[in-house]
Design a protein around this nucleic acid. Structure first.
Lengths: 157, 157
DNA sequence: CCTAAAAATTTTAAGCTTGAAATACTTTGA
DNA sequence: TCAAAGTATTTCAAGCTTAAAATTTTTAGG
């Protein structure tokens, strides 16, 4: 059996995967840009802030900085800055952890919870309208395909 | 006919679209992070730089700054900075446009062309390996679905 | 010819992002 | 006990990104 690809099959396969990636990237960048723009115009906020609020919304008791950066798959230093600005906005508070003076828990304020609940509803409708070219059938096929894609080499799945 | 959704059908549909978006976003972020990391470690470069080189590689005669930012769907000011650093790296040159003293054409240098050709080959193999959980059949279905997704509201398609 | 509008690009200010270094605290184990 | 290793977080420097303002040059219309 040959160790080299004499028929060009592998090469064609690689090109198909590259096409998928470029298309995936284009779509997600378009949608992301649109969402960032709408968050900016309609809610005077940003996607990173929205993402942090979304993570905290799911955890009634708040999250440690490290848990937050793990959940969002971004660096610790990154979260520090975003949370700082959210504190300034009055959306979250930092609470010291009793028993560990290194750690901090971040929690939504009442305002943060209310504001996010509203934004999340509107956000969901944006997504639905952006993706309304998909038939219900296509949507089912797509969700199924995407759910089974475990990217090789990626840190957290 | 009722104007409100009394059966929750619309709501379920919206949630399905949101699932698709979250999954799409997760996958593209994972892949992007992996690609950034590899570009950094193996080629000491960044994704934005790679993207600019890729655009210029396709255009033998170079591109005006405005054409470049349109092709990459990023702001003009953004391209200014990236090109500046690529010039420092010796990968591209700026050439004044005869007949229009406002404009600049950016072109790959010989080094830029050679370096990019190599990186592009390796890059393609990264993508193929990251997506090798897809059967050829799934890949065909996916490429077809993605090709037909024209995001509503997005600037350029 | 002249001026106002348009076009190409750069600059600026603010925020996001990272990896690496620094700081502060806790745990482990001899 | 106490030093070394480990953990949680922040700080830092560099680069990416944007929208808006500024700069320079070209084009159009009177």
């Amino acid at each position: 059996m040959s160790l080299v690809d004499e028929t060009g099959v592998t090469d064609e396969r690689d090109k198909q995967r590259l096409r998928i990636w470029l298309r995936l990237l284009k779509i997600s960048r378009q949608m992301e840009a649109e969402i960032r723009e709408r968050l900016r115009v309609e809610f005077a906020t940003t996607l990173p802030r929205f993402d942090v609020l979304a993570a905290l919304y799911r955890e009634k008791d708040g999250m440690k900085m490290s848990a937050l950066s793990a959940a969002l798959m971004v660096s610790n230093g990154n979260v520090t800055g975003i949370v700082e600005r959210l504190v300034t906005d009055g959306m979250v508070v930092r609470v010291p952890v009793s028993g560990d003076r290194r750690a901090m828990i971040v929690q939504l304020t009442d305002k943060g919870r209310e504001d996010f609940a509203h934004m999340a509803k509107v956000h969901e409708s944006w997504i639905a309208s952006m993706l309304d070219m998909l038939s219900d059938q296509d949507a089912d096929v797509l969700v199924d395909l995407l759910d089974n894609m475990q990217i090789k080499g990626a840190k957290t799945q």
